[in-house]
Amino acid sequence: MNNIKLENANSPVIKDKNSAISTKASLKANRKFKKAGLFTLFVGPAFLAFAVIVLIPFFTGIYYAFTDWNGVTGNVAWVGLDNFKYLFTEDKQFQRSFLLTIKYTLVAIILTNVVGFGLALLVSQKLKTKNILRTVFFMPNLIGGLLLGFIWQFIFIKGFESIGSITGLSLFELPWLGDEKTAFWGIVIVSVWQGAGYIMLIYLAALQNVPQDIVEAAKIDGANKWQVLRHITMPMVAPAVTISLFLTISSSFKIFDVNLSLTNGGPFKSTEMLALNIYTEAFVNNRYGLGEAKALIFFLVVAAITIIQVTITKKREVES
């Protein structure tokens, strides 16, 4: 019996089966290795660049948030939570900038989305000039924030002064960048003028995907334009609302270039947004550790708000 078992184990048929199984296993291993190699080849450079540019500075910034460092010398002193205690108890300018940024974000989100959606409705109509209007409305988004701020600084100071002297309208005679309230609204005007065109494209793409047979059926049933907009169009473009809100929240919180070039935080730091306050603290006052602590708080707040916003709007999409 033992001789028979040994002969069966050493038979050519069993050897062929074992070799076939081993060949299939080696082929599968080679395929997995090739896939892993291709994945590394295509994703590796991008991930390496992302790690060098984003991940490493992010985690080193978290470390420096708990230190006292001027950003220049090699003397880095660990201070623990002292930076955060100082921000919430003694740094009044940080608190004012934080509240001002929240106020600006609320206003900019509403106005940018309302204006962007209104422009999308306008250019979605059967107009001969709709393609020209789309280009004109989107063009401000192509201008850099620093350049845009300097252009509008000239408009507010020189342009409005000339128009006011000619027309006598009090609106153009206001000290747009010299007063706290008007300077704030000047930043809002420039930001909405720049961002509404981009948001318009998102809403326009969503409006073009609304089924026209449903709209025509609603009109036949007696629905007016407002009812069609409220009960058909708005639920259909809900995913675009989610995207637009996310983009406007993040961009409004992170406003820096327009704030820097238009008012530079003035007059008397009354329009200094949070990003500009962080920049000033780290690179002007040379308190890098304190600036990183502000940036970490800023990141956590923006991340929390955007996650809550996306979660809520996604639920409303499902409900609608």
Rank of each mutant, 00 (worst) to 15 (best):
W69A: 00
I202M: 07
N18C: 13
L260C: 06
Q194D: 02
Q125M: 05
L99W: 15
V136C: 10
L27P: 05
A304P: 06
P235Q: 02
G37M: 14
M236E: 11
Q212E: 13
F42D: 07
I62M: 11
Y86V: 03
L6E: 15
I62Q: 07
I220N: 07
Q125I: 08
T89Y: 01
P12I: 01
L171M: 11
R230E: 08
Q95F: 04
K314P: 07
L276A: 04
Q153G: 11
W193R: 05
F299V: 09
G164M: 01
N70D: 12
A51C: 12
G164E: 01
N83W: 03
I232L: 11
A282H: 01
E180G: 02
N277D: 15
F42R: 05
S252H: 06
D179V: 02
L27M: 14
E216F: 04
G37S: 15
G168A: 06
Y203Q: 00
T167G: 02
L148Y: 00
T101R: 03
V43I: 15
N209S: 14
I243R: 04
I232T: 06
L99C: 05
I151Q: 09
I14E: 07
V228I: 13
L142T: 12
L147M: 08
S170R: 03
K17W: 09
R31T: 07
S162A: 10
K128A: 15
L290N: 05
E161W: 10
F42Y: 10
I102E: 06
I278M: 11
I157H: 02
K32R: 14
F172M: 01
A303T: 10
G289I: 01
G195H: 07
A29Q: 14
L245M: 14
L146F: 13
T248F: 04
N8S: 12
P235E: 05
L121I: 06
I163V: 09
A238I: 11
G265D: 03
F150I: 09
S97K: 02
L207C: 06
K269Q: 13
G116P: 03
I305R: 06
K92R: 14
I166Q: 09
L38N: 11
I110A: 15
R96G: 03
N209D: 08
K34E: 11
D213E: 14
A108L: 05
A196R: 02
K269T: 13
I21R: 13
Y203P: 03
Y203N: 04
Y63W: 10
Q212R: 15
A120M: 11
A51S: 15
G266A: 09
G222V: 00
V188S: 00
T40I: 07
G61F: 02
Y63C: 04
M139A: 13
V310T: 13
F156S: 00
A108K: 02
S170K: 07
F246G: 15
N18E: 06
T233I: 12
E7T: 14
I202S: 03
I297D: 04
I163E: 01
Q93M: 11
A303D: 02
G197I: 05
I157D: 08
V228R: 12
Y63L: 08
